[in-house]
Design a protein around this nucleic acid. Sequence first.
DNA 1: CTGGCTCCCTGAATGC
DNA 2: TGCATTCAGGGAGCCA
Length: 268
Amino acid sequence: MPELPEVETITNNIRPKLLNEQISDCAINWERTIAYPLAARFKEQIKNQRVTALTRRGKYIQIHLDQDTLLIHLRMSGDLYLSTEQEPNKHDQLIISMVSGKKMVFNDTRKFGRVWLTDEPVKILSKLGPEPLSREFTAELLYSLLRSKKRQLKPLLLDQSFIAGLGNIYTDESLFEARLSPYMNSADVTETQSVQLRDAIQKVLRKGIQNNGASIDWVYKGGKFQDHFQVYQRTGSPCRICGTPIKKVKLGQRGTHFCPTCQTVNGE
DNA sequence: CTGGCTCCCTGAATGC
DNA sequence: TGCATTCAGGGAGCCA
């Protein structure tokens, strides 16, 4: 599942290949991929625009064009890459071709991914919480944000309006790194624990990026962070700190992995 | 405000 | 072997 480190890796990979390219045309194979505007208008509006920059915000890839911004959210199974192949692959939902002949492919097996073409990307991105790797993401900020809510840490960290970019993998890994229980109520987190959690989130995300993200299932290949998982997908395996079998539970409708010995709610 | 649940999708895993 | 069922997972939307 592409989360912040995977999206960062993908954005970095395509940036040099796409900068200054001019779009000539696009093929929409699954209309629902286009979240905005209507498919027909999208197709017209994107034509002839030139790529000026590529950035990431949360789990969104932003492809800045000279008129609009192309926002891409990969959701569960999306991938974005340059292709030289003539025939489309299975699950190529959107293919954008360049004047130079290059083709950018949005491939998405489960069809959850979405693409927007808008001159007001802020309207979509302003719902997001702070960037966890930015300078503004201090322990003090996290502490005040946590105290302003009364929610269990796991579902709260997954909430993109709280912090942008964490998904199921990096949330579980961050909570383990911080030694905090996924069940813990955010309002009970102390200042010291906020420091731990901020440091843990940044450490885990940075390590993810260094490893080009994680490759799990058949989705997204190329990353190596899966070799460094402490809890994610390690159900029943011994905790690397204390040896207790890693537990998997359902929390907020999401599979949640943690060490019941190392990750406590203030001793409980 | 919070939590719980459903929906969108496909492919892998499991059951018989 | 083959068919049917179940499940995972990000985020929107709905309801309590």
